[in-house]
């Protein structure tokens, strides 16, 4: 995992805002901050949930190991140490999350920014209702494990969904769970845990995967990176609001009256 993680340095994410939401954004983005582990999910269960290979199966490759490949002379290749997955020639595979608007720890943009800040060899996507993360397969499994086991995941408000992701903005069900048309997971009332019965694209699992208990909403409100009127409103964080306006003003003037933009 250390070969995939970006090492935290002196430079910290400079995201603006004085609220807890802004603080959480800075915290999760900062590779120097260790994400809090809240649950344990075995390596095999992560592989099952991803659905790209069965546990124990060898990684498929799309090219020979880099050592055998005989790469051309290239200063960038000398500068950048390949990740283990890249060295081995793994396929690029994905994990995709859906984050509920109801105080999920992350939202898609924050998820992408976090991936860029914290991990190497990532290709995140940013949509409103889903956030894919593509990596070399063995690297992906390590990162997926961290994303599922730590405070950036909540079993009820975050879904692992490869397709038919619809649900981020829908009301919650009677158990406080996010809607999923494919019903990949169920709420086990006896244990209070969420159990995945299908993998991320909806293929039924032989062995269900338990991902733990949903967090109370009050706790989610303290962990979230989402501004909401019933949580922390943007109106209550003037530093963020003014920063956005300034960005807008600079971008506008830079394209129209550059000399004015330079004076701001």
């Amino acid at each position: 995992m250390s070969e995939i993680k970006v090492k935290g340095g002196k430079y910290k994410p400079a995201y603006p805002g004085q609220s807890i939401v802004a603080e959480n954004r800075r915290k999760y983005l900062d590779p120097g901050y260790e994400l809090k582990k809240l649950r344990s999910i075995s390596d095999e269960d992560v592989v099952r949930l991803l659905g790209h290979r069965v546990p124990g199966e060898a990684y498929k490759s799309v090219h020979p190991p880099l050592e055998e490949l005989g790469e051309p002379a290239c200063p960038i290749r000398e500068l950048v140490e390949p990740t283990p997955g890249a060295k081995a020639g793994d396929r690029i595979r994905y994990i995709q999350f859906t984050d509920s608007v109801y105080f999920a720890p992350l939202a898609p943009y924050v998820r992408s920014w976090m991936a860029f800040w914290r991990y190497r060899g990532v290709d995140p996507g940013t949509l409103s209702g889903r956030a894919p993360l593509e990596m070399r397969e063995r690297d992906l499994e390590l990162v997926a494990k961290e994303l599922l086991e730590t405070e950036v995941f909540d079993p009820a408000r975050v879904g692992v969904r490869g397709a038919t992701v619809h649900g981020h903005s829908l009301r919650l069900d009677e158990n406080g769970m996010m809607f999923d048309a494919l019903r990949r997971y169920t709420f086990d009332k006896k244990t209070g845990e969420v159990v995945y019965v299908k993998d991320q694209v909806g293929v039924p699992l032989d062995t269900p995967v338990r991902v733990g208990k949903p967090l109370p909403e009050e706790q989610l409100k303290k962990m979230t990176t989402i501004y909401r009127v019933d949580g922390v409103s943007t109106r209550d964080d003037p530093e963020l609001l003014n920063w956005v306006k300034r960005i807008h003003l600079l971008r506008t003037l830079a394209g129209f009256r550059l000399e004015k933009a330079e004076k701001l």
């Binding site: 954004r25 984050d99 608007v101 992350l106 939202a107 898609p108 943009y109 924050v110 996507g125 940013t126 949509l127 409103s128 209702g129 981020h168 990176t225 989402i226 501004y227 943007t234 963020l240 609001l241 956005v244 960005i247 807008h248 971008r251 506008t252 830079a254 394209g255 129209f256």
Partner: peptide, 26 residues
């Protein structure tokens, strides 16, 4: 861009790309 910073999300991949640079030529 205000919406994006508030919710941490906006549209889909290609939807909002133009919206983050359009002010420059408005």
């Amino acid at each position: 861009i205000l919406h994006k910073e508030h919710m941490g999300r906006l549209g889909f991949y290609g939807y909002d790309q133009q919206d983050q640079l359009g002010m420059t030529n408005s």
